[in-house]
């Protein structure tokens, strides 16, 4: 058991799984493990400059497009996407970094959009589920979800598709065991995991030779 747990931690660190979030939550301010990562490359507000509580201009780069918004600093990336930009593929479910239904890709890594403030997401490359589909063609991960019926009510599905895509980008040849350990950060209520496992394994094959994203 212990050995398996260690493996799970290793995999979890690469994505932002529920477990990784809980490990990092003690030290982070608002974005879990993200905080440390963002400190590296992100253009930060001038040190000492206080913004808010009123609205402040915010620029987000989402699916290759620049969006300029005026938001209170407390607005999460998820609420900005859903309520302000009408990008509703990322779902609001637990709203506290557990279920993965709001997963988006930030600089190649899957993150929970409910756990990132919109203001923190500035200067990062964001990809949402809407950005994975290019034109009329389904992304191979989406097609695999359809083939294996890895969806029922479908509310967790976009978050799963995004997380699975980021996972396969990082692990192009996953085993079933890898899938089970690496995708523990997304939860489903209808019970579609059996299909998801098969879908990820299939998509890992079809995504070879250049994935549409990241």
């Amino acid at each position: 058991m212990r050995r398996k747990k260690d493996q799970r931690r290793e995999l979890a660190k690469e994505g932002l799984s529920r477990r990784a979030f809980l490990q990092g939550a003690g030290a982070a301010v608002s974005g879990g493990l993200l905080t440390a990562e963002m400190a590296q490359g992100a253009p930060k507000a001038e040190s000492g400059k206080v913004v808010g509580p009123g609205t402040t201009p915010i620029t987000l780069k989402i699916n290759g497009k620049i969006h300029k918004l005026n938001l209170e600093p407390r607005v999460t990336l998820l609420d900005a996407l859903r309520d302000r930009l009408d990008l509703t593929g990322a779902k609001k479910v637990c709203d506290r970094g557990v279920c993965g239904s709001c997963t988006v890709i930030m600089d190649g890594k899957p993150v929970y959009a409910c756990n990132v403030l919109a203001i923190e997401a500035q200067g990062h490359d964001l990809t949402t589920i809407e950005g994975l589909r290019k034109g009329g063609e389904l992304h191979p991960m989406m097609a695999a979800f359809v083939n294996h019926d890895a969806q029922q009510c479908g509310f967790c599905t976009p978050g799963f598709v995004v997380a699975c895509t980021a996972f396969v980008n990082k692990h192009p040849d996953p085993t079933l065991e890898d899938v089970e350990k690496g995708l523990g950060g997304n939860l489903c209520r209808c019970g579609t995991y059996a299909g998801v496992r098969q879908a990820v394994l299939e998509a890992a094959k079809t995504m070879k030779g250049g994935s549409p994203n990241a």
Partner: peptide
């Protein structure tokens, strides 16, 4: 395959 599968999996 469910006919609304693409709509769901694509968000």
């Amino acid at each position: 395959s469910r006919i609304d599968g693409p709509a769901k999996s694509s968000g």
